[in-house]
């Protein structure tokens, strides 16, 4: 059997001013074809103004079991949110 085309992850900017968002993946022999295929598969109804493709194998991802060590530290730092501080009404909007 011949080699399978590599998998690419597709990111699309939906509108001007927005960031690219992951929409799905597809197979293509190279980046150029991946963009062409992404156009056909993911933007048939005007869903985008810009496409990024990245080889799935090149993406490094955090592991679900790291959830605790990665995100727990930020949970205990409530003072990072503006609502932590009471500002008297007399001061006005801040």
């Amino acid at each position: 059997m011949s080699t399978e085309w590599p998998l690419w992850e597709v990111f699309i900017r939906g509108q001007h001013g927005m960031s690219h968002r992951h929409v799905g993946s597809l197979h293509a022999p190279d980046a150029e074809m991946a963009i062409k295929n992404a156009r056909d598969v993911y933007t048939r109804r005007n869903e985008g103004v810009s496409i990024w493709v990245v080889k799935a194998a090149d993406i490094a991802a955090s592991s679900p079991s790291d959830k605790g060590p990665l995100y727990e530290p930020s949970q205990s730092k409530v003072y990072r949110h503006p609502t932590f501080f009471d500002i008297p009404d007399d001061v006005g909007a801040m």
Binding site: S2, T3, W5, P29, D30, M33
Partner: peptide, 11 residues
């Protein structure tokens, strides 16, 4: 098959 193989070889 030959199209898939050809495009892969080209890439």
């Amino acid at each position: 098959a030959w199209v898939r193989d050809g495009l892969m070889a080209h890439a």
